[in-house]
Design a protein around this nucleic acid. Structure first.
Lengths: 253, 253
DNA sequence: CGCGGAATTGATGTGCATCAACTCGGGTGG
DNA sequence: CCACCCGAGTTGATGCACATCAATTCCGCG
């Protein structure tokens, strides 16, 4: 994941078609012609580097972005100068949906490692979906899915303890990488511990301690940014029901 | 807000047109003809009562719902039997957008007080938006807005302390009621302290204590479910930068 | 009138933030 | 090529915000 690769123009083209396929065309996809038309409005990606901004908070909204390779973080300014990491975006994932409403980006997107990103001008996409019902449906689904993911995150931040949060985070990465054909149990973290903590609502130190503990418990193997998940089922059980060792907070209503 | 009202059929019709107007047609709204067509597919509301379900987790997704009067809470099962309150929905607000993706509701919606709810069959709405670009655009905005709201909530749960959360909650209610022409500083809570706490990731006791403290500080007046906000600017400053009295946690990345 | 859930209030416990010190690795310049 | 530096990460000690436990009161409702 953190390896830099030289990518031929043609492989970008193909990969890009692939990622729009995966993100926008989901299951029960579009007809080949639809895909072709969609593919035509997608701007090819040039490589971007760590620290580059895809867009910044306050920028006018023009396009959606799809990660082809690499990874991106989105974050919003918190009150008092801090920032809240809103998400990490892996290959095949889409960025910018939250800006459609106000026509202005409310968060910034920063490249975490050398990445290739496709750009989809939104106006053109809108025109296309207006004439392609199946594509319109996929757009609704895509937006809806994003809402569902945010909901999961609310649950995580509202109800889970540090251990569960980190386990959920690792599993989420694992599953998303796996979906893209990468190893679900051996990968590199492109973000810092600080960013992970920020995202999960935890202090850096807590993240660090948990990595250590998970390693001691044989759940995973951590070497710097290189992660190996040794016991996925155990991690899953940690997420599920506050596992074995800790208190559980449950609130009926 | 918690008063029961007898509502004539005609007033429902009018009010209903009104609420679709507000939710779906946002600023720079639709042409009168568009609104008319939209209005035609909206099913009129019959009154629902406290405890009724609009839909339950697992139900097949058929329609979106717009609150006309009253209020609704949505919640998802948490691990371990508990539940996470995902939101409170006031007049003019829409429910069910998260279910488009999977075609199944991932959360339940329960009526908090006697309410009138409009139903918009999604398939028909989709047909209509496919032939009405301006309406399609409004739909995208609506979905996008929901994402933006979830984002705000993530920030709240990830970075704010109890005091800031409750203040933000009260202000949110205040603003949303105000938008509907109701008093921004005098209203009834249709949800229990327990539900508020659950929503904000706090214990009931914490919510209760904060109400007491806010009252002592002259910020508000609490009488059971009846709330009066006496100092909106002060509440706003509490939300903003962890105000005066408390620690602030900020995490740079 | 009396029951039971909701809310308040107080006492205590604890998970995690915070503070502080140290280590590690990687990049830089001499 | 090594010495140095600096930020990222780890580890330990301490404190605090809020959860949890435990009464008690309050109100709605049958």
């Amino acid at each position: 994941m953190s390896q830099f690769k030289v990518i031929s123009l043609e492989s970008i083209r193909v990969a890009c078609k692939n990622c729009t396929l995966t993100s926008l065309c989901l299951p029960m996809g579009l007809s080949p012609e639809d895909v072709e038309r969609l593919d035509e409005i997608v701007k090819r990606a040039r490589p971007l580097h760590r620290g580059d901004y895809l867009f910044r908070e306050g920028d006018r909204f023009r396009a959606l972005y799809v990660v082809k390779t690499g990874s991106v973080k989105t974050f919003a300014p918190s009150s008092e100068g801090g920032e809240q990491v809103l998400g990490f975006h892996l290959p095949g994932e889409i960025i910018g949906l939250d800006a459609i409403d106000k026509d202005v980006h409310a968060c910034s997107a920063k490249i975490l490692e050398t990445s290739a990103i496709c750009e989809i001008p939104f106006t053109r996409l809108e025109d296309l979906t207006a004439t392609t019902p199946s594509l319109q449906h996929q757009m609704y689904r895509l937006l809806s899915k994003e809402i569902g993911q945010d909901t999961d995150m609310l649950l995580l931040l509202g109800k889970k303890n540090a251990e569960e949060r980190l386990a959920a985070f690792l599993l989420s990465l694992s599953q998303r990488l796996h979906k893209r054909g990468l190893s679900p149990s051996d990968f590199y973290l492109s973000m810092s511990r600080h960013e992970i903590g920020n995202y999960l609502g935890l202090a850096v130190e807590t993240v660090s301690r948990l990595f250590t503990r998970f390693q001691e418990d044989g759940l995973m193997c951590v070497d710097r940014k290189h992660i190996q998940l040794l016991n996925l089922p155990a991690l899953e059980s940690l997420v599920g029901g506050s596992g074995q060792g800790r208190r559980q907070q449950q609130q009926q209503t």
